[in-house]
Simulated assay, not measured.
Amino acid sequence: MNSGFTGTATTVAPLLEDFSLEMTGKDVPKLEEARDTIPEGTRINVTFLGNESLEMRLDAARAVKRFGFVPVPHISARRLPSQAALEEFLAALRADGIADNVFVIGGDPASPQGPYEDSLAVIRSGLLQQYGVRHVGVSGYPEGHPAITDPALWSALELKSAALERHGLSGGVITQFGFDVDPVLAWVESVRGRGVGLPIRIGVPGPAGVRRLMSYAARFGVGASAGIAKKYGLSLTNLMGTAGPDRFIRAMAEGYDARRHGELKLHFYTFGGLKATSEWVAAFRKEN
């Protein structure tokens, strides 16, 4: 559990302790540019995109470690063509001393490209711990998923939590980003009500252009009605503007109660803007 921070507190500091960031395999130059603005030891997730090679993903994870941060390589289950491909990736991570933490997702392809239908299948394979993985992150969807029913999402989360425990792996949840705190906190409370005690990192968009944020929201099925957009601070009449997550984080701090919500931290989706995001976080922490 987190500290005794509840919704009556006025500070956002507890939520911003130990925040995490996300980058792609192509973002190594941007990481180098941003390194001085990111706290040492920050967890940085490295995505597993279809247009990136194994070496590109490995180079990015190596760079994260080299700059003094904690790499969290993604494993996209449905993008793995074979068990051998999974073992090749895990063996390379182990050889570089960066296999401790991974984040396992189903992935975008509608049909598996190999033997792994979803992230649960990768966890159940038993290969992760064989190659030195100790901590496994999994996805959470407070506002649902455009291609997966809510009952299936709840079942998957419960099964993944149980499988991690059975395999002796610690774990955590990173949620898809959203613009409205209310469904996020309601979802977290439901997670706890179902007996899932994994730490949760709430996905938050880094500062970005309104048009770009809306594009990502549409892609991932995130609700962004005119009312929600205004609540977040987006101007749908000025798509050329930019927006940061300050209102969202303050509302999260006001509604967060550790007794009901358990351990919560923040995970920033940077959309390629590692420096802009890390500078924004640093400035926001000083203000609050």
Rank of each mutant, 00 (worst) to 15 (best):
S20F: 12
R43T: 14
P39I: 06
G114K: 09
P73W: 13
R94M: 10
A77Y: 07
G114M: 04
D59P: 06
G7L: 03
D27C: 11
S125C: 12
G97S: 09
G68H: 03
G68R: 10
P39N: 09
A9D: 15
R62P: 01
P109R: 04
L93S: 02
L80T: 01
G114Y: 08
V122E: 05
I38L: 04
A61R: 03
P112E: 05
T24G: 12
G114P: 06
A34H: 07
R62G: 01
T24V: 13
Y116H: 01
G97E: 02
L80M: 12
G50C: 02
G107H: 09
L93R: 06
A63L: 03
L58D: 00
E87N: 13
D108E: 15
P73K: 11
E40V: 13
T8N: 09
G41S: 08
P39L: 00
P39C: 02
D118Q: 10
S76L: 00
R35T: 12
A60W: 08
D108A: 14
A121E: 04
L21H: 11
D96W: 03
G68P: 08
P14T: 05
E55S: 11
L80R: 09
A121L: 00
D59W: 03
F67K: 06
L80W: 00
T37V: 14
L93T: 05
V64W: 07
R66S: 10
D96V: 02
G106I: 07
T10A: 13
S20N: 01
E88Y: 01
T11F: 05
A84M: 12
E52Q: 15
N51H: 15
L90A: 06
F67G: 00
G25V: 07
N101R: 14
P71E: 08
